[in-house]
Computed example of a mutant assay.
Amino acid sequence: MKDYDTASASAETVPVANSSDVVTARHVVRTLAQRTGLSLVHQTKLVTAASELGRNMLVYGGGGVVRTVTVTENGRTGIFVEFKDQGPGIRDIELALTDGWTSGNGMGLGLSGAKRLVDEFDIASGPEGTTVRIVKWGR
Rank of each mutant, 00 (worst) to 15 (best):
Glu52His: 05
Gln34Ser: 10
Leu38Tyr: 02
Leu38Gly: 01
Arg55Ile: 02
Gly63Ala: 08
Thr36Lys: 10
Val59Ser: 08
Thr68Ala: 12
Leu58Ile: 06
Met57His: 04
Met57Thr: 12
Arg55Lys: 13
Met57Ala: 13
Val66Ala: 09
Arg55Thr: 15
Val41Arg: 12
Asp21Tyr: 04
Gly37Ser: 08
Leu58Trp: 01
Gly54Asn: 04
Ser39Trp: 04
Arg35Thr: 11
Lys45Glu: 09
Val47Thr: 15
Val69Thr: 13
Met57Leu: 15
Gln34Ile: 12
Thr48Arg: 05
Leu40Asp: 14
Gly37Ala: 08
Val59Arg: 07
Lys45Tyr: 04
Val23Phe: 09
Arg26Phe: 07
Val23Cys: 04
His27Glu: 14
Leu38His: 00
Thr24Cys: 07
Arg67Ala: 12
Thr24Phe: 06
Leu40Ile: 13
Val23Pro: 02
Gly54Ser: 12
Thr68Asn: 09
Ala25Ile: 03
Thr44Met: 10
Arg35Val: 08
Arg30Asn: 15
Asp21Trp: 04
Thr77Trp: 08
Ala25Asp: 03
Val41Phe: 09
Tyr60Thr: 09
Val29Ile: 15
Arg35Leu: 13
Thr68Phe: 05
Ser39Asn: 05
Thr68Glu: 06
Gly54His: 02
Leu58Asn: 00
Val59Asn: 09
Val28Met: 11
Arg67Ser: 14
His42Pro: 00
Ala49Glu: 01
Gly63Leu: 05
Gly62Glu: 07
Leu53Gly: 00
Glu73Pro: 04
Thr48Lys: 09
Gly75Gln: 10
Gly37Glu: 09
Glu52Asp: 14
Asn74Asp: 14
Ala25His: 01
His42Val: 03
Leu38Glu: 02
Leu32Cys: 05
Gly62Asp: 08
Ala50His: 01
Arg67Tyr: 04
Gly75Pro: 11
Arg76Thr: 11
Ser51Val: 03
Asp21His: 07
Thr77Ala: 11
Val69Asp: 04
Val23Trp: 04
Asn74Ile: 04
Gly54Val: 02
Val71Phe: 03
Glu73Gln: 14
